[in-house]
Design a protein around this nucleic acid. Structure first.
Length: 510
RNA sequence: GGCCCGUUCGUCUAGGGGUUAGGACGCAGGAUUUUCAUUCCUGUAACACGGGUUCGAUUCCCGUACGGGCUACCA
């Protein structure tokens, strides 16, 4: 009867931060674990902070990660609309309920007036002015004036808000699934604005109403919400919905890789690491940044990394597919303290995922990148190329950045090694080797190896004399896959061409 | 300032009244690979501090310190 329903409710005020992705992930995992529903709800009640494109970005990010909502603005569902800005009328009715029950009141103090009071109080040494039970009877609201006066003020067009009337001298206890019981003294809680003067609800009101209407059973959100959960419980009580109130779980935050505080967009720029799933374009270069995707991450690796940042299965398993995560997931295993963002670990996960992939799968994935660079877009070729490269790359881009010589001429030779290994007096012998390769009927790595070995014997040379030369002639560098296999993949014609060209270069540089 | 949350290797963490405090990343060394990388092995390194409770605390309690969050007509 109690169908689990879980929601991810971001605000479209910019790109979805990696911490937001993790919140979405945990929501998704719990929903799937409980065979429930994963809802995406867009909390766009602040018109001043709305950023065009942010909602699309959020959706694209979730989809890239494989966290597909079951319900949401563009996924349909029986509990819509899923954008709060489209639910304005719904909230109005609930605000009226609260007003009628005496749980809320009209407040006529403007934001400017309150700001002035705050400043004055601050000057007097009171750093924490709150609009609460101790001061509400001294302020301009429907509690301090007659019903007629209040109505007249509203009719006159004076701006007004609706505030929650927090009861005095009570204790509200939140049972957090991660932290246990957390108690709040109502005397510490302020009379939160529920309905703003522009007619939009605040987060607090919209959130409670929507979670109730959408039959949400579990609220999993960042720790920054823990302090307002006392208000939220009060709101459930005010509406008479305490029986069906969702369970709460407040997630620890993701912290900066260095220094203090939570991870921010700035850290990505400062440290040259991605902190968002996808790139974000902006006219202002200060606001633009590259994402995990564009850095060359596999989404499964990002998900795996994020899942283990603050959660663990209790086993020693580190690599988890999304399905395995669903299977192993439980809220109780989520840690309580903030987790530092560790980019080295993220890279390690990506390496594991790339290495673990089938060459054919990898080749298909790399195809678009190859085309982008106008590289040879030949699936069987790419497949073998992946087999040779996948154990030495971190990002998808590395395949082409480090293995460019599989697609174009060598542009840089490791001359330091050339100077050590290239003996001009052996040029004639090396030409003989090159020509002997031309004669090979099957240009396989076994045949090449055999040919090189017999050459070394007749020329009285050792591997150390010949292999580095071949390697640099073919790829320009001492790093890379097995030399004979590289030669086989590149083909006889190309190899002979490269050897001739390289030997000339070597002669000139010794 | 007030309220709330937290604190095990550099980092992510397991554990839990008596353990050689385990794993992973990173780092260092070695083996294999006549390159690089992979793989494998080894090493490095932690219970914030002070009081209790207890035969015994890293584990339970209380303080302190430190870190984090909130303290808006932002979410």
């Amino acid at each position: 009867m109690n169908q689990p329903r879980v929601r991810f409710a971001p605000s479209p005020t910019g790109a979805l931060h990696i911490g937001g992705v993790r919140t979405a992930l945990y929501n998704y995992l719990l929903a799937k674990k409980l065979k429930g529903t994963f809802v995406l709800r867009i909390e766009d009640t602040d018109q001043t902070r709305y950023v065009p494109g942010a909602e699309a970005y959020i959706q694209a990010s979730l989809e890239w990660c494989g966290l597909i909502p079951d319900e949401g603005p563009s996924y349909g569902g029986a509990f819509g609309p899923y954008r709060q800005s489209e639910r304005k009328d719904i909230y109005a009715g609930y605000v009226q309920q609260l007003l009628d029950k005496g749980w809320a009141y009209y407040a006529f103090d403007t934001a400017e007036e309150l700001e002035a009071i705050r400043e004055a109080e601050h000057a007097k040494g009171n750093q924490g002015f709150k609009y609460d039970a101790t001061v509400r009877l001294q302020l301009k609201n429907s509690l301090t004036m007659s019903k007629e006066a209040a109505e007249a003020l509203i009719a006159s067009g004076h701006p007004w808000t609706v505030r929650l009337k927090v009861p005095a001298d009570e204790v509200v206890v939140v049972e957090d699934l991660i932290r246990g019981a957390v108690a709040f003294q109502t005397n510490e809680l302020d009379d939160k604005v529920l309905l703003k003067s522009d007619g939009m609800p605040t987060y607090h009101l919209a959130n409670i109403v929507d979670d109730h209407l959408m039959k949400i059973t579990h609220v999993i959100r960042g720790e920054e919400w823990l302090s307002s959960t006392g208000h939220h419980v009060l709101l459930y009580r005010a509406f008479g919905w305490e029986e069906t109130m969702p369970a709460f779980a407040h997630l620890p935050l993701i912290l900066k890789p260095d220094g203090k505080g939570k991870l921010s967009k700035r850290d990505g720029k400062r440290l040259g690491i991605p902190v968002f799933p996808l790139s974000w374009e902006s006219d202002n270069p200060e606001d633009a940044f590259v994402g995990f995707k564009e850095t060359g991450f596999d989404p499964a690796a990002v998900i795996n990394f994020l899942a283990l940042l603050g959660w663990n299965s209790g086993t020693e398993q580190e690599i988890f597919s999304l399905d395995e995560l669903i299977d192993a997931f439980s809220l109780e295993k989520i840690g309580k303290s903030g987790a530092r963002f560790d980019f080295d670990k993220a890279k390690w996960f990506n390496e594991q995922y790339i290495k673990g992939k089938d060459n054919a799968v990898l080749a298909a994935q790399l195809m678009p990148l190859a085309k982008e660079r106008s590289y040879r877009a030949d699936l069987p070729f790419l497949e073998q190329f992946c087999g040779l490269m996948k154990e030495r790359v971190t990002f998808y881009q590395d395949f082409f950045e480090e293995g460019y010589y599989f697609f174009e001429d060598v542009h840089t030779y490791d001359l330091a090694t050339v100077q050590k290994k290239w003996k001009p007096e052996r040029r004639a012998a090396m030409d003989v080797l090159r020509d002997s390769l031309t004669q090979l009927p099957d240009f396989t790595h076994e045949a090449i190896k055999k040919a090189v070995e017999s050459f070394m014997e007749s020329a009285q040379l050792k591997f150390g004399d010949v292999l580095p030369i071949l390697r640099i002639a073919v790829s320009g560098t001492m790093k890379g896959p097995a030399i004979f296999e590289m030669m086989e993949l590149l083909g006889k014609e190309e190899i002979v061409k490269r050897l001739s060209a390289a030997f000339d270069v070597f002669d000139q540089n010794v």
